[in-house]
């Protein structure tokens, strides 16, 4: 049992892990008792580490195995969308890193509990194309596009690493979908010390990316596709690579500074200041090329043309739509005499 525990405690979604917890006969109420404060502490740590973008360190399997549940309870008490997404991202990244070290036999046990059926084919894993699309479509790198994969008789063939990335994504979605759980107020109250500490950190984090309001740049005239991308980021969703590219080049073209653009990405759950800065600088000209906003046709191809409306007619680039709006307003203003001395 010891040996198994050492292996399974890292994977809270495994049936064996759930069995272990069940057999231990420790109830929710028990965990909130004083004697279990270390488990609570570790649950909190999991969440705070995710918030800080740090990797959670595991050393005591017999404690850690319960900390997953306590983290879920705390997240469910706080009920914050951003926090849950952020946690799901880091928790799934952690699991990916452990899975890479496991052998194929163990991985077969993992994929079943995440609902992705796979089969091994020599050194590759094959999964049904619908499973692949479900989890692979959100990936940013073009290498993940179906067209760049081997697809045969309904199955997509993947290297072990690629396959584990798919499992990571399946796990991330599972956490996102499962949380928040329905937790009785009574339980939340008993954990309020830990919960308040998390909330405090969360608010500090949110304050650091205080919603940036567009000042001189007239946001009202943003085309619907760009409004959508901005709102997705504000909601804490991950947007695709092509979406980021489009938005960054657009914002830069309408005159927003690099720092201002980076600020917008700050509410993204996987925000990484250094990476974002690098990407934004690259797109806005550090490489010698200033990338222009992609055309409407390209936006369509990548599924980024969202909310196309009447004003998009006769426009072939989102920039055109923006200028059209500005011009229209300018002429209305002139018409009404705005801007003239009275």
């Amino acid at each position: 049992m010891r040996v198994e525990l050492k292996k399974i405690y890292k994977y809270p979604f495994l049936e064996e892990t759930k069995d272990y917890i069940r057999d231990s006969d420790i109830s929710l109420e028990d965990i909130t008792e004083i004697g279990f404060s270390e488990i609570l502490e570790r649950g909190k740590r999991r969440i705070l580490d995710a918030l800080d973008g740090k990797e959670h360190v595991y050393d005591k399997p017999e404690r850690e195995i319960f900390s997953y549940s306590t983290a879920n309870i705390m997240l469910s008490c706080i009920k914050d969308d951003y926090l849950i997404k952020r946690y799901a991202l880091f928790e799934s990244k952690r699991v990916y890193k452990s899975m890479v070290k496991e052998d194929d036999k163990f991985i077969e046990r993992v994929d079943q509990s995440l609902g992705v059926r796979s089969e091994r084919d020599n050194k590759e894993y094959k999964i049904h194309f619908t499973d692949y699309l479900r989890y692979g479509t959100g990936m940013r790198d073009p290498r993940w596009k179906l067209i760049n994969k081997r697809v045969c008789k309904g199955y997509v063939y993947l290297s072990k690493e690629n396959f584990l990335r798919i499992l990571q994504e399946a796990y991330r979605r599972k956490i996102n979908d499962d949380l928040p759980l329905n937790v009785p107020d009574e339980i939340c109250k008993r954990m309020r010390g830990n919960i308040n500490e998390i909330k405090k950190k969360l608010n500090e984090k949110k304050a650091s990316f205080m919603r940036y309001e567009f000042s001189e740049i007239n946001k009202d005239h943003f085309p619907p596709c760009m409004k959508f991308l901005v709102s997705e980021i504000k909601r804490g969703s991950n947007i695709s690579h092509s979406g980021r590219f489009a938005l960054t080049s657009f914002l830069s073209s309408v005159g927003m500074s690099r720092d201002e653009i980076i600020k917008i990405y700050r509410s993204s759950p996987d925000f990484d200041e250094e990476k974002t800065r690098y990407q934004v600088e690259h797109i806005t000209g550090s490489s010698g090329t200033v990338y222009r906003c992609p055309s409407c046709a390209t936006m369509k191809t990548y599924g980024n043309c969202i909310g196309e409306d009447e004003d998009c007619r006769w426009v072939s680039n989102p920039m055109g739509r923006y200028y059209k709006g500005l011009k229209k307003q300018l002429s209305t203003n002139l018409h009404q005499g705005a801007g003239y001395p009275r």
Binding site: T130, L133, R134, T137, G138, K145, L146, V151, T301, G303
Partner: peptide, 13 residues
């Protein structure tokens, strides 16, 4: 149950 973006991937293929 495939969603729009997933269906588009098939079309792109």
């Amino acid at each position: 149950k495939l969603r729009g973006a997933e269906r588009r991937e098939i079309l792109d293929y």
